[in-house]
């Protein structure tokens, strides 16, 4: 199963997921140790510079398709795939670049997080109200432009103003974001890519 994800073979992955259902395998193990190992390996290959965006995205889509097929049957086995945490994702107001944020969302879902994806060009107030509404653990804010990254700081300032900064962990992403920017914003971390975003989210939710 892991191999089908790493080899980016959607049909094979779905066949194997169906076979797991037919053979009445322990589905939670199938997800976590089978396909889950695959998406982890996809992440490693990205880290090693072997995989790029298309492979990463395809791998996450295959993982998600397999999970979508198996998920409804988990209940019958009286097992639940526990969410690793709830994450709100948004690209900041004025920035239409949604792709990096979407990839992070896809990778987070594939890795067992519940994701509320607000899309791109999202106002600071909307991010705050949605984070409160969904009671997320982590707020992830993407900014691809040097002209828009200042908005990431505005979200954190607004959280502080509302007295709810400690209710959420805030992670930043986007090409111009650096550690010094994270320090300046008093954010909880930043990720350079979708794979490190998954690692960071795991850390922030632990």
């Amino acid at each position: 199963m892991a191999k089908s994800v790493v080899d980016l073979e959607m049909e094979k992955a779905l066949d194997l997921a169906q076979k797991a259902l037919d053979d009445n395998l322990h589905l939670l193990e199938v997800i976590e140790k089978g396909f889950g190992e695959g998406i982890k390996r996809v992440g490693d290959l990205w880290d090693e510079g072997e995989f790029f965006l298309p492979e990463l995205m395809r791998g996450a889509q295959i993982m998600q398709a397999a999970v979508d097929l198996l998920q409804p049957h988990l209940e019958a086995q009286q097992s639940v795939r526990e969410t690793r945490g709830k994450v709100l994702m948004a690209t900041i107001e004025g920035d239409i670049h949604s792709i990096g944020k979407t990839i992070v969302s896809t990778m987070l879902r594939a890795n067992g997080f519940e994701v509320v994806d607000l899309g791109a060009d999202v106002k600071v107030e909307t991010i705050i109200s949605e984070a409160k509404k969904h009671q997320v653990n982590v707020i992830g804010i993407s900014a691809l432009l040097t002209t828009t990254m200042i908005g990431q700081k505005k979200v954190i300032d607004a959280l502080e103003k509302h007295g709810i900064r400690n209710n959420f962990k805030v992670m930043l992403g986007g090409a111009p974001v650096t550690q010094s920017w994270v320090d300046e914003c008093k954010a909880d971390g930043y990720a350079e890519n979708a794979v490190s975003a998954v690692k960071l989210t795991k850390k922030l939710c632990s």
């Binding site: 900041i92 107001e93 004025g94 060009d121 432009l145 040097t146 002209t147 828009t148 200042i150």
Partner: peptide, 16 residues
């Protein structure tokens, strides 16, 4: 161009 416009008041999120 973008950085120069920012110095002259281009707002966050505004398309240069």
């Amino acid at each position: 161009m973008g950085t120069q416009l920012m110095l002259r008041g281009l707002n966050q999120g505004e398309i240069p």
